[in-house]
Amino acid sequence: MSTSEKASREVTVTNETGLHARPASQFVQKAAHHKADIHVIKDNRHINAKSIMGILSGGIAQGSKITIEAEGPDAQEAVDELVDLIENGFDDE
């Protein structure tokens, strides 16, 4: 039996370019620091949050509603951190 932690939260992307180039890169790097499996769910599509190509191809624009879902030892922390990144904007914007 797995006792693995699960967490998820919905968030609306507010920064102007969405998860384009640099924001996508920052997002993926933050996701990659966590042990948990992390997915971004958009329109029923489960995108691997640690894959730059997945995120770039996800068409996540300003105004997109996405759900961040994680499963693994640091799932809650991962979701909180990524939601915070999206809500509070990205460093270089």
Partner: peptide
């Protein structure tokens, strides 16, 4: 299809990437 469990797609074009540093190549990937 990306992000789907088992939704197939008939691929006619393939772009295969050898990426050494996703951070560095992010503009090109975009």
């Amino acid at each position: 299809q990306m992000g789907m469990d088992d939704e197939p797609v008939d691929a006619q074009l393939v772009f295969m990437m050898a990426v050494t540093d996703p951070g560095k190549h992010v503009d090109q990937l975009q």
